[in-house]
Design a protein around this nucleic acid. Structure first.
Length: 280
DNA sequence: CGCATTTCCTGGTAGC
DNA sequence: TGCTACCAGGAAATGC
């Protein structure tokens, strides 16, 4: 009935959890405990329109409406879309036409990092990340050649660039660290200096990690209210994230934690070395 | 324009 | 035990 990220680390929200919205007409929209803000732009406009599909792009949920608009939902790190009224932190309430599941949509967002807004269909200029988003990670579009070309476009640290969603959609902070550890790439390596031979490995690592995490999360999604491990079942699979101060599983050297692009970044200083030209 | 840094926000918790 | 201070992070905004 609901869909959420778990502490923002389920990189991709799962569509089956919100499929019930398809075909619903929006009868009313109410902004609760949130000022009209860009995060909730044009909300009243969705009233009177019908949800014609439930799509996803990266971490964004995209709900095209039959009146020519599109409802865009981003869960941030603490967002939940549910038909059951949450006790606290409701930001948006939509009154919906009836079906067997629910007559209401509640958007709960404790930390207010999420977004719930209306744009003209397909017009994403006000959402730069969505507008410039790379290919879907779990699709035939995500090829070695595409990924290689994308990584060449920036000299930013590869960790930061992955988080920008530009080379590929859907990679969050934990999974960036994990994919770079798997493929022995230093997070500060300039994106365009990642060795060509490692790019297919990195591409595959991203796909594998996202698939596994979605599987693992799926098993905890139903009872998330009682789960205290905030990253869900996938937490047991992590090799780098959260393991700073511990021995690297591969070589025994202590995992370090640094800040890259303002984000906690975990890596093995022995396994993950900068390319020679980048030293000093 | 490209890249780096700061901001938003609240609950959990480390440290006293 | 209770209080304060700080940390976490996706995307946008701001700074250079």
């Amino acid at each position: 009935l609901g869909v959420r990220f778990t502490k923002g680390q389920l990189a991709i929200p799962e569509l089956p959890e919100v499929e019930w919205l398809k075909g619903k007409s929006i009868l009313g929209a109410e902004l609760i405990d949130a000022v009209p803000h860009v995060k909730y732009a044009n909300l009243p406009r969705c009233v009177g329109q019908q949800i014609s599909a439930v799509n996803r792009r990266g971490k964004f949920l995209l709900l095209p409406l039959d009146g020519g608009d599109e409802l865009i939902i981003h869960l941030g790190m603490t967002g939940i879309v549910t038909g059951e009224k949450p006790e606290k932190h409701i930001r948006v309430h939509l009154e919906l036409s009836k079906n067997s599941v629910s007559n209401d949509l509640y958007f709960q967002d404790t930390r207010r990092f999420g977004r719930f807004l209306v744009v003209k269909q397909g017009e994403y200029e006000t959402l730069p990340t969505l507008h410039n988003m790379g290919v879907e990670p779990i699709s035939d579009d995500f090829t070695d050649d595409i990924f290689k070309a994308a990584l060449k476009k920036s000299s930013t640290a590869v960790k930061t660039y992955l988080l920008s969603q530009k080379p590929v959609a859907g990679v969050g902070n934990i999974y960036a660290d994990e994919a770079l550890w798997q493929t022995k790439i230093h997070p500060l390596t300039p994106s365009n200096k990642v060795p060509s031979k490692k790019i297919p490995l990195l591409r595959q690592a991203i796909v594998d990690i996202l698939k596994k995490s979605i599987e693992a999360q799926g098993t905890t999604l139903n009872d998330y209210r009682t789960v205290n491990g905030e990253v869900g079942a996938y937490i047991s699979e992590l090799k780098a994230y959260g393991h700073d101060g511990e021995a690297c599983e591969r070589c025994g050297v202590i995992i370090e934690k640094i800040v890259v692009g303002g984000r906690g970044t975990h890596f093995c200083p022995n396994c993950q070395k900068l390319p020679k030209a980048q030293k000093s």
